[in-house]
């Protein structure tokens, strides 16, 4: 018994049609969840009454449950919900929209935490300096704080994106014709599942590495102003954990404590 390479070539050719579908899901989810993530992070940081609790609850719920459960809930609840609103048409909706919904909802939670810690790493002296040259708090936020937070969040946005790309491989459960779905169908004819999934694996490796390279280029491009000690060049091999930046926060605090002491 050995791998059927002819079949693998064939799968590679058909499954490539699923690549744009996967990329589309990832891009849509990312583009919608980035601004909402910033907004939610601000709600948490500024402890906006009422909303803060909702965001906290939402993030905890999404981060505490498997993506598969979220997929199953959205996929079973939304059609009947839509059915009530727009009638029978709900059932003929392209399932990719359900994928958009699930993965956007999921990414919002991840990115909220990413931006929360990134915003906290920006020294509060940056805001004060802005106020002291006459800016309004809002102006200082947009022009000084947010750009710095976004850049220090880049490695974790990269992590979140990787996480999103990998999770999107479950879109086939919602009958989305993505890479996995196509390969699975092909494999079912002759029971060549191993070959099919090896091909899918390679596609995901390529997509993930591609994303990682893009983020590394972004990081390198934007890191020109950052302190050499803090610079995160090269590949970020850290585990895909968004608690990672906490350490950064702590070292930053330690640093500012040191300067505070020095100044007394």
């Amino acid at each position: 018994m050995s791998l059927n390479t002819d079949f693998m070539v064939k799968v590679a050719q058909t499954a490539i049609q699923g690549v744009p579908v996967t990329l589309q899901i990832v891009l849509v989810a990312l583009l919608i969840s980035l601004p909402i993530g910033v907004l939610f992070a601000l709600i948490r940081i500024y402890r906006i009454k009422g909303l803060e609790l909702i965001v906290k609850f939402y993030v905890s719920l999404v981060r505490g449950t498997p993506i598969i459960a979220q997929i199953l809930i959205v996929y079973s609840a939304f059609p009947s919900l839509l059915n009530m609103m727009i009638g029978k048409a709900a059932f003929s909706i392209n399932p990719i929209y359900y994928a958009y919904i699930v993965f956007t909802l999921n990414s919002i939670a991840t990115l909220t935490e990413v931006f929360r810690s990134a915003l906290q790493t920006v020294d509060k002296g940056q805001m004060e300096a802005g106020l002291m040259v006459g800016m309004q708090p809002r102006q200082a936020f947009w022009r000084i704080i947010l750009p710095q937070a976004l850049i220090s969040a880049l490695p974790n946005i990269a992590n979140a994106t990787l996480y999103l790309i990998k999770n999107s491989s479950l879109a086939f459960i919602m009958s989305v014709k993505d890479i996995t779905a196509i390969a699975k169908t092909e494999a079912a004819f002759n029971y060549n599942f191993l070959e099919a999934y090896l091909v899918v694996w390679v596609y995901y490796l390529i997509i993930c590495y591609g994303a990682e390279i893009i983020f590394n280029l972004l990081e390198r491009y934007f890191s020109k102003y950052r302190r050499s000690a803090k610079r995160t060049t090269g590949f970020n091999w850290n585990p895909f954990s968004i608690k990672q930046p906490k350490l950064v926060v702590k070292t930053d605090l330690a640093e500012s404590e040191r300067t505070n002491n020095a100044h007394n």
């Binding site: 020294d123 002296g125 940056q126 004060e128 300096a129 802005g130 002291m132 000084i144 750009p147 710095q148 850049i151 102003y225 950052r226 500012s256 300067t259 020095a262 100044h263």
Partner: peptide, 11 residues
């Protein structure tokens, strides 16, 4: 205001 730790806009 001139700050003890400068607080220049890093970006």
């Amino acid at each position: 205001f001139v700050f003890q730790n400068y607080n220049l806009f890093n970006n």
